[in-house]
């Protein structure tokens, strides 16, 4: 009897645990929060720019991700980072908590502050367009 209850419970719980999302969901979410449309061109220049306002070792997103989001990057420790563009790596931009965690960390490392919702929308739009 118990199993009959556990199975539907699992079916309901799984999607919530994975917090699955998609690039278009993310763009929608962030641009709604920012109150403006996402702009892939702005996302590109943001991603490639040398900000230099964060921690000295990480002036730019490209420090670790390289200039091409379709190619693998490298952490400062030598560890390979899989490409960020969803076209090159289907797992990217599909987990809200993960995306949020890395924006929180990477924006602080590179800019010395949090990214705005608009900046996130732009970057995701650009990455998704690659």
């Amino acid at each position: 009897m118990k199993y009959l209850l556990i199975v539907p419970a699992l079916l309901i719980a799984t999607p919530a645990l994975a917090q699955s999302t998609s690039p278009s969901d993310l763009i929608q979410r962030y641009s709604a929060e920012a109150g403006r449309a996402a702009d892939a061109g702005r996302g590109k220049s943001f991603f490639l720019a040398n900000h230099g306002s964060g921690k000295p070792d990480t002036p730019s997103c490209t420090t670790c991700h390289t200039k091409n989001p379709r190619s693998a990057g490298k952490a400062r420790t030598g560890k390979t980072i899989d490409p960020l563009a969803p076209s090159a790596n289907g797992a990217r931009l599909t987990d809200l908590a993960k995306v949020e965690k890395w924006f929180r960390r990477n924006c602080d490392s590179v800019l010395g502050r949090s990214c705005t919702a608009g900046e996130k929308a732009d970057v995701v739009a650009w990455l998704a367009s690659q």
């Binding site: 921690k55 960390r105 602080d108």
Partner: peptide, 11 residues
């Protein structure tokens, strides 16, 4: 972790 060897690794 927020200032972890020159990076933010916060959880």
């Amino acid at each position: 972790l927020a200032d972890h060897f020159g990076e933010n690794a916060s959880l």
